[in-house]
Amino acid sequence: MTARLTAFVLAFCFAGGAAAQDLDHSCRIASSYDLTVRPDALLFERPEVAPRTVRMHDGSLSTDGRDVSLRPDEQDRVALFERSVRALLPKAKALASDGVDIAAQAVRDEAATAAPGAAASGDLDRALNARVADIKRRIAASQSTRDWQEDAMRAYAQEIVSDITPILTEDVGGEAMQLAMNGDLQGAAALRDRVASVSSGGQARVMTRVENALRPRVQALCPSIRQLLDLQSGLRDASGNPLLLLESGE
């Protein structure tokens, strides 16, 4: 089963692989669903295995388009489940936004080593600030975990790295050429290698830094996630099968 803890906290993806594994190992909970937090409902979706869609709103529950008959106490649990997920949304977005800031600072540090001239010129900061603002707008507007999972966050990190690579290349190009003209081919190659290292390995190093910084905050979500597992207990889908939006690994 694909582990998609972000389907319930909208957070794991912005923290990346290690943090997601922390949730998997510490909370011992996983999910195969993606989640869209809509104004009128929570919508859980997965491509395979019924139920493929689960909808929750104000104490009502439907699976694959069929309403589920609920007792009053079950209606209360469904309503609390929805409220709990919605309460996690601003916390998750704050984590994601902080993760982008950490990633940007990590890129600045990488750039300062590879091309200190570019870092000092202001061009680097302008490019980074524009990209960070764009990603934060996308995070603020997003209501789906498809935009928050690990692959998405790695893509965001790659966007940041890609933005600055031309600036670094331009900065060291003239210096490398001057060294080469003076016969220092090794020095010229070393300059170019530093920039290439930011482009090729920078994304992985940036993501590692984000993961390490956010890990304690991601792990702190475990009690809230476990509460969702408890609220789900005993609920069934429209076919009478146990509803397993979350599954315990214990």
Score class of each variant (00 low, 15 high):
Asp151Val: 12
Ala114Gly: 01
Tyr33Gly: 02
Cys13Gln: 12
Ala130Tyr: 10
Arg209Trp: 07
Ser26Glu: 15
Ile102His: 11
Leu243Gly: 02
Glu250Phe: 15
Glu159Gln: 07
Asn182Trp: 13
Ser197Phe: 10
Lys91Leu: 15
Gln203Glu: 15
Leu95Thr: 01
Ala79Thr: 08
Gly174Ala: 11
Ile29Leu: 13
Ile164Ala: 05
Asn212Pro: 08
Asp123Trp: 08
Gln105Asn: 13
His57Trp: 11
Gly187Pro: 03
Ala180His: 02
Arg108Thr: 05
Ser84Glu: 08
Ala19Glu: 07
Ala115Asp: 00
Ala190Val: 12
Asp22Cys: 13
Met153Leu: 14
Arg205Ile: 07
Val161Thr: 03
Ala96Pro: 01
Gly117Val: 03
Asp123Phe: 08
Asp125Ser: 08
Ile225Tyr: 07
Gln186Ile: 14
Cys13Thr: 14
Ser162Pro: 08
Leu221Asp: 00
Ser121Cys: 02
Asp64Asn: 04
Leu221Cys: 04
Ser199Gly: 07
Leu70Thr: 03
Tyr33Gln: 01
Arg154Asp: 08
Gly122His: 10
Asp125Thr: 06
Ala30Val: 13
Glu211Met: 07
Val37His: 08
Leu168Thr: 01
Ala152Gly: 02
Ser199Ala: 09
Glu48His: 12
Gly240Met: 05
Leu235Tyr: 01
Leu42Ala: 02
Gln227Ile: 14
Asp24Lys: 11
Leu124Gln: 03
Ser142Ala: 11
Arg137His: 12
Leu168Cys: 01
Gln21Leu: 13
Val218Asn: 01
Gln219Asn: 08
Arg126Val: 10
Arg66Val: 13
Lys136Met: 04
Arg126Gln: 11
Val9Gly: 13
Glu48Lys: 13
Ser84Phe: 04
Leu23Trp: 02
Ile139Asp: 00
Ala152Pro: 00
